[in-house]
Design a protein around this nucleic acid. Sequence first.
RNA 1: UGCCCGAUAGUAUAAAGGUAGUACGACGGUUUUUGGUACCGUUUGUCUAGGUUCGAAUCCUGGUCGGGCAACCA
Length: 552
Amino acid sequence: MSEERSLNFIEEIVEEDLQSGKHGGRVLTRFPPEPNGYLHIGHAKSICLNFGLAHKYGGNTNLRFDDTNPTKEDVEYVDSIKEDVKWLGFDWAAELYASDYFDTLYDFAVSLIKKELAYVDDSTAEEIAAQKGTPTEPGTPNQYRSRSVEENLQMFADMKAGKYPDGAKVLRAKVDLASPNMQLRDPLMYRIKHAHHHRTGDKWCIYPMYDFAHGQSDAIEEITHSICTLEFIPHRPLYDWFIEQLDIFPSKQYEFARLNLNYTVMSKRKLLQLVEDKHVEDWDDPRMPTISGLRRRGYTPASIRDFCERIGVAKRENMIDVSLLEFCIREDLNKTAWRRMAVLDPIKLVITNYPAGKTENLFSENNPEVEGGEGGRELPFSNELWIERDDFMEEPPKKFFRLGVGLMVRLKSAYIIKCESFTKDEQGNVKEIQCAYIPESKSGHDTSGINVKGTIHWVSVPHAQTAEVRLYDRLFRVEDPSNEDGDFKEYLNPESLHVIPDAYIEADLTNAIPGKGYQFIRKGYFTLDKHSIAGKLVFNRTVTLKDGWVKK
RNA sequence: UGCCCGAUAGUAUAAAGGUAGUACGACGGUUUUUGGUACCGUUUGUCUAGGUUCGAAUCCUGGUCGGGCAACCA
């Protein structure tokens, strides 16, 4: 029972409940997505909260699909949600659907009609809206509000039987048309939708609204702590009202502030637009803040869980810096990713005093962060190498610890070299760099006594393989695209994807394992994209390395 | 204009009437065969005006600012 971190406000509530013996010490939470889109990092916060809370206090969590609106939902989304929750590392106690309760919910509605707490309203949507009044003016009752129990019962049954077209009638709760809380002004409980449901098929043509499904589902499952986001605060009195009138299990609702991340958007509606308008490849485009996008980008479940832990849980609106997410994945990958070498923007380097045609196999460890290096691989070395174009400067400034005529660097896991000269092509671009190597400076057996400041990565020209490398930048140019004038899509970053069709990679990288993270030394963390095939590998850059070098 | 929620360094998040702390960021340094990692250090904060109290980030009142609520969405 070591208490490293102080409790968040929801944990405090749970601990109080546990101490007072509420629910016999039982904790049951639920994660209740609507299957109308893919899960994103904001959902990850909710998942970690709900599952984490239950796990911490010896309870369980249900996965419940809030599938009360058949026109927006699909099994494709159900499947992706299950996959994403599992991938994040969580197991649900039961896989449930609000649609499992449609019969019970119908009976609940009938019982409210009998208690004169619900009525069938024939008004149009516009009329109902008008009759609700405004925040400063009370609503006004219409003639349908005083219908008899018998008539309501009959009409509600007829609604269910399909006797009316969409929109002809709704069932409303009779609460308080003058309430200062708009949610209480006789909210809708059921609407008519002659639509095919992905689970119940054509059995129903009336569907319960969120407010008459969510709390009831919580009660049916005997959820002890129903955790949702801030915008549902005004719904809480209604949540409690239905439960009280129905006299069912007293689940309680608690609200926390949803996650906002800068330089992206987080609403399913907007993410769907990006997919439909082809601004991104799909829901799992590596630039998307979706769980599947982050997975494809190379994020690990542990890094996302760590992120959710670090951002905390409170009731204050927040905007989290993506740099924190990046910190979390770097921290994870630094410990686990195997080091490899790849040259993204190549320039040729020739070692003038190394025999042409000779190949030497050097050794380089997989992971310097682990004792023993987790083994290693052979690195073929020759007199012609690819190095990074920006590791050479014609006129290097003082603090430039790389190549320039007269400067020395170490080639990672190989030799120290000294730059002697360079040649240019007709356009005046540097074409080739000539260096001499120091034979006594071989990595691991260095007797040269020479100390160099810089070490650069390289790939042997005759042994190099090629791969497509995709570099990503933030999806939007502004911190909060939803808050800018005009359409949020105007603020997309036109340079969010940079494709390098044929980068040079070291030979061993052709054995790269899908799903594993690799650090391309000095270039960042990369992972194989799902579109990779043998002979045509594609790597996604998950994140750059932190760059401490300040250019001036 | 009504009701509801909130306000602590740049960003988040602690401190339950008693020393404002932590993480990320930024900045500086040490180490380093990755300008990475690791380690060390520095920096910046209680929205405002009153009140209660020996003592207020915390309790009370007014104000300011931000967010939410008037979908047959969730």
